[in-house]
Design a protein around this nucleic acid. Sequence first.
DNA 1: ATAAATACACGAAACGTTTCCTGAAAATAA
DNA 2: TTATTTTCAGGAAACGTTTCGTGTATTTAT
Lengths: 337, 337
Amino acid sequence: MKKESSSPTMKDVAREAGVALGTVSKVVNGLPVGDSYKIRVEDAIQKLNYQVNSYAKGLKANKTYTVAVLIPNTIEPFFAALAYHINLVLMKQKYRMLLCCTDSDSTLEQEYVTMAQQNKVDGIIGLTYNPKLVIEENTPFVAIDRSIGTGIPCVASDNFGGGQLAAEKLADFGCKNVAFLRVGSSLSNEPNKRKAGFENGCLSRGLHYEMKILDDSEPYEEFETFLEEHIHDGRLSFDGIFCVTDRLAFSVIQTLRRLNQRVPEDVQVIGYDGIRLFGSMDYVCSTIVQPLPEMAEMCVELLLRENMKAKPPLVCLPVTYAYGGTTSEQFRKSRHP
Amino acid sequence: MKKESSSPTMKDVAREAGVALGTVSKVVNGLPVGDSYKIRVEDAIQKLNYQVNSYAKGLKANKTYTVAVLIPNTIEPFFAALAYHINLVLMKQKYRMLLCCTDSDSTLEQEYVTMAQQNKVDGIIGLTYNPKLVIEENTPFVAIDRSIGTGIPCVASDNFGGGQLAAEKLADFGCKNVAFLRVGSSLSNEPNKRKAGFENGCLSRGLHYEMKILDDSEPYEEFETFLEEHIHDGRLSFDGIFCVTDRLAFSVIQTLRRLNQRVPEDVQVIGYDGIRLFGSMDYVCSTIVQPLPEMAEMCVELLLRENMKAKPPLVCLPVTYAYGGTTSEQFRKSRHP
DNA sequence: ATAAATACACGAAACGTTTCCTGAAAATAA
DNA sequence: TTATTTTCAGGAAACGTTTCGTGTATTTAT
């Protein structure tokens, strides 16, 4: 009886079982040990309710089975879903998730990266827009959804293909005159690809299109003004709209209804991401679905891959279209019965 | 040059600066040290890009500045918002968040608690429905939203008061005939309080009310059946509905619209939680708002409070009503101009 | 029955910190 | 100038593991 309150250590277990320290370590780690010893140690562990101290373990092993995940927040459904799927994959591999919400603040992001390194996490998965993030080279880093260049691998959905798919769907559903709506810095690569893919799709299907791109500082209300300007005699000149995210689509749909435009009868709307409110219910809108489970799987796989050099700079995973009530699919139905 | 790849240690810094190990430690921890030494050490830290190894630190200090947060998932907005606010508070106090998604699986919950103890987190904040969770007494634990009894402090919103407030609001807005809808185990204390408060409010305001409570295993569709049974000649016999969560309210509102009932003209709906989709936009429905920032603050405060014995068993924080488009407030407006 | 080979528990050293005791140098008092 | 006190850097010990060289006990071969 030396220290009443603190937890028992291997030394205590060894004393209780009447064996050497190293023997306890072997039993705990499943290494071969004589049966009689093993039983005695296991009994002692039971009796003392021993639990390994993972700090001591981490100190020796320099490996922690912890991965830091950097996302802006958990409030926006897309980020929340991302965290959820990454957590599932990590859990399956017996890893833990240190969740870091950055609010897209680059100072905070840098702080978290430093912290993660101090905490000796085994790697970092980050969704960040900050291209001048300094990352120690001994900490593996995988970017998700947004590439941050400089030799850091990135896992994203096929943004170009997704944009193209949106255009094709709108064409399939009978649209002639469409718009692309977007918020956020034009420096972000991935949204640019959505735009490029959409343009490409519009051109190849002969759709007339317009673009409206807002800076982060401008309020969503600007879209209302934009749309209002395109209403003549109560009719909107667009019959299809592709929004860069479901979040934006959600807001635009409300705006359209406020402007007495029916969705999808007067104007069809497609978003991007594949958000389902409350997790298990319908899609917010018709949308291009990002393959989150596969993206999470790929991130973790890349992150923990032994051969550091064999990491591709960009992995694009295929997207799919999903109906969410804001498109009219009669055209498709008649074409593909 | 001994180990090329691994990070520099305090010993390396001490050698570089030509001082003792303990001196480096003091500089790193801001303890008083002679100026000339301090400068030399700081230069060496810069030069070697030294970072403390928090595993060694944790091993000595038995303190980690990490808190485990157990929630079912990050997909449902309420849990996501909770995690977000807890993270904010922890961050402010220089703590990190180890996020554990349990899917409400009691085996997983127990695993995470054990893991958290091994990881020597400084405490656990848990949203769990599992009353037979085994928690080591040297790990502080605070329950949030749901009490799990057995001497573990719990931070929740004023569920009874919230239920009552919902009844009062419905009465204020002219309802005569209301319903309470709920899913989930009737063993959960907090939802029971919402129900009790609502009943109490109905009685004191002379509202006629009915209850429909579903087990977790029964699908939401049962509510549709229930509501359909209360429609005669196209008119629903309820003019007000209180749903135990916004999530349920969201679903019920869709059902009502499907049944050709207008919300709020024919029937008003109030939810509970205060969910805002996409973080910063409107409420999903008129709702009783849980004070998440205050709840998070209180959780962390209790968790880290020195005097373990001075923890109250239950902290109820006040709720507020918020308009979210599914109530008609004319009555109130005329009464309180 | 003896010698050689094998198996395996033992226990010390090391991981990178913090802390505390020691002792030398500086400052004060006589 | 010498004696006493104060200050503060130095360095060893400890935290709880893992790992590896050592030595004893058992097995196999002769």
